[in-house]
Nucleic acid binder design. Structure first.
Length: 605
RNA sequence: GGGACUGUAGUUCAACCGGUUAGAGCACCGCCCUGUCACGGCGGAAGUUGCGGGUUCGAAUCCCGUCAGUCCCGCCA
């Protein structure tokens, strides 16, 4: 049907007859001569239609509309010197058309412009409803090719490292913990349900028990939770698991894989190894387990300094077991007005969103004097003031913003404020030049976090993470006591303040696995019912193993410089978890439900 | 479940404090144009201002409700 790609034509083929297929990107009709930019996935080329050299083609070209699908036969010739276009890869040549065939037309109006020259932003609702048109546009085509190159780079690397790609079930069983499951009723086994996997976690561990040793998968995962710019109900993980490796070896291997991907996709040599930061230090200095370390504004704990002082917000927070932490903003006196810190201000709003009651502040003046609200100023001794300035390293002109309360809220609020101010003050580099890809391993996560709503411990990653043996001790009798505060051999890869992936060494001892399940409140009989297959496998020669999973959509998003993973997915869903293209989800017939032994309780009220 | 923003021609946007016939670019249709490349020129058609209700002499504009999209909180091991 065609001999060349439109965008592949160069001087080398001058004089040759070519056959091209593609879409009309634009048409320029000069009355006597008509230019048609023909576009296929390789690019665009100018088709020149001259009435003297094909009356039929000319008559047809006079009424060609954008996005009409054409086959063009013609001869490649150099453009007149003055008409050469060096902004176009094919700009030195053109194709003089002898025959034009319309393969398909466009009926009615296009929902939006497709042309490569049209970078107008289009309402996302329309882009999603006519996704096939959106995919024809430059941006989405580029993103999907970039996604492909990302996956290919990972596959090449993992192939060289001896990994094999194994598919795991999409229809599996629902397990407790974690996100809501998408459920699928079983017709054959009435009243019973499959769940779509939230991740292939258990299967990849079983593959290790199965002696695969090195597994990976580009794995679709499903979670029935509310959406965000970086969360879709179905998303893709680059999922890996390996046997007989220490934690450090796993990190090193994954760093090399990330470096290989960045090299292949961006042509960038990432410096290895990536820094490692213990979780506790991340929380202390940044208030989050995925800090953006491209800029300062670190959190400073001043609880001990303000403990027992007359300002009750500070003293009370410390007395009730919480914390008082500070962000010191050099030059903040100039940059941030009181109005912005007080109720109604944008900085205040950031803290409030995170659950903080407000932000206390101190402005550092010349000669070690301070300005603040009376309640703070009047209650802060010279001694305490000096200690504050010393600990925060605050010079004159510095604004100190305080968070006070329970430690989790303080961390959360100041983390938000820190990120907000970094953007406001222009501290976040918006280019992604070499050194701006700020990778970081956060290691030594705790095994558990406390879920106040359910009044129980829950796994911070998932309940199959292996605890750190140093924290656990050798005596199994002490496990129950020592586990709740133990660190896990778990790690997250953080890039510019976003979690790119995470993993852990896994438990390969059934007694320890039972103990962990018990710790999160799963009674033994329930553990056996839900996870008996895993516990049994662990007893039948499970090797030490561990792994990691990367959020592929998010990785591609960052590589592509996009701000939503929807722009890296061919057919994404809206925030209401709908597919605007197919109109899914949708009604099914009563007969289908009956066959599935399902009755709907839904009502519109 | 909650908060915020957006919705005007096929599309991207405009329309000031509520006041004339809701405008412009691109796309579309017609005519002109032989070297453009986001071609150019002339003309034309195209609107349930998301939908429903209310306030008002008068509503794209104000109010209430609703639908859709987006961002965020909750939620997401």
């Amino acid at each position: 049907m065609r001999s060349h790609g439109c965008g592949d034509l160069r001087r080398e083929v001058i004089g040759q007859s070519v056959q091209l297929c593609g879409w009309v990107d634009r048409r320029r009709d000069h009355g006597g001569v008509i230019f048609v930019d023909l576009r296929d996935r390789s690019g665009t080329v100018q088709i020149t239609v001259d009435p003297d050299l094909g009356a039929e083609a000319f008559a047809l070209a006079e009424h060609l509309r954008n996005e009409t699908v054409l086959r063009v036969e013609g001869r490649v010739r150099p453009r007149p010197a003055a008409s050469s276009n060096d902004r176009l890869a094919t700009g030195a040549i053109e194709v003089l058309a002898s025959t034009i065939t319309v393969l398909n037309g466009v009926k009615g109006n296009l929902p939006f412009q497709v042309s490569v020259h049209d970078d107008e932003s289009v309402r996302e609702e329309l882009r999603l409803r006519h996704r096939y048109l959106d995919l024809r546009r430059e941006r989405m085509g580029r993103n999907l090719r970039l996604r492909h190159r990302t996956i290919q780079a990972a596959r090449r690397f993992l192939e060289d490292e001896g990994f094999i790609e194994v598919e795991t079930p999409i229809l599996t069983r629902s397990t407790p913990e974690g996100a809501r499951d998408y459920l699928v009723p079983s017709r054959v086994n009435g009243g019973e349900w499959f769940a779509l996997p939230q991740s292939p976690q258990l299967f990849k561990q079983l593959l290790m028990v199965g002696g695969i040793e090195r597994y990976y998968q580009v794995a679709r995962c499903f979670r029935d939770e509310d959406l965000r710019a970086d969360r879709q109900p179905e998303f893709t993980q680059l999922d890996m698991e390996m046997s007989f490796l220490e934690e450090e070896q796993i990190l090193a291997l994954n760093e090399r894989m990330i470096a290989a991907i960045w090299k292949a996709v961006k042509g960038i040599e990432l410096p290895l190894p990536f820094p490692r930061l213990p979780w506790s230090e991340a929380m202390e200095r940044y208030g989050t387990d995925r800090p953006d370390t491209r800029y300062g504004l670190e959190l400073v704990d001043v609880s001990d300094i303000v403990a027992g002082m007359g300002f009750k917000v500070f003293a009370g927070a410390v007395a009730s077991g919480g914390a008082v932490k500070v962000i010191a903003i050099p030059g903040g006196n100039e940059a941030i007005s009181n109005v912005r810190i007080k109720p109604g201000g944008d900085v205040f709003a950031e803290a409030q969103t995170a659950g903080a009651g407000g932000l206390a502040f101190i402005r550092v003046r010349e000669g070690g004097t301070i300005d603040s609200i009376g309640a703070i100023k009047d209650n802060l001794s010279a001694q305490r003031t000096a200690e504050l300035l010393s600990r925060t390293g605050a010079l004159p002109g510095t604004l100190l913003l305080f968070g006070a309360g329970d430690t989790a809220t303080v961390n959360k609020a100041l983390d938000r404020v820190r990120q907000f101010l970094a953007r406001e003050l222009g501290l976040v580099p918006d280019d992604r030049a070499n050194d701006r890809w700020n990778f970081l391993w956060v290691v030594d996560f705790p095994m558990f976090g406390f879920n106040a709503d359910e009044d129980r411990l829950e796994a911070l990653h998932h309940p199959f993470c292996a605890p750190n043996p140093d924290d656990l001790g050798a005596d199994p009798a002490a496990w129950g006591e020592r586990l709740p505060t133990a660190r896990a051999q778990a790690y997250d890869l953080v890039l510019n303040g976003l979690e790119l992936g995470g993993g852990s060494l896994r438990i390969h001892d059934s007694a320890l696995q039972r103990q962990v399940l018990k710790t999160i409140g799963l009674p033994p009989e329930e553990a056996d019912r839900q996870f008996g297959f895993l516990l049994e496998a662990l007893d039948l020669g499970a090797p030490p193993h561990g792994g990691i999973a990367f959020g592929l959509d998010r990785m591609v998003m960052l590589l592509a410089g996009e701000e939503s993973i929807r722009d890296t997915i061919a057919f994404p869903k809206t925030q209401q978890a709908r597919c605007l293209l197919t109109r899914a989800p949708a009604d099914v017939s009563a007969q289908q439900l009956e066959e599935l032994h399902v009755a709907s309780t839904w009502s519109d009220d």
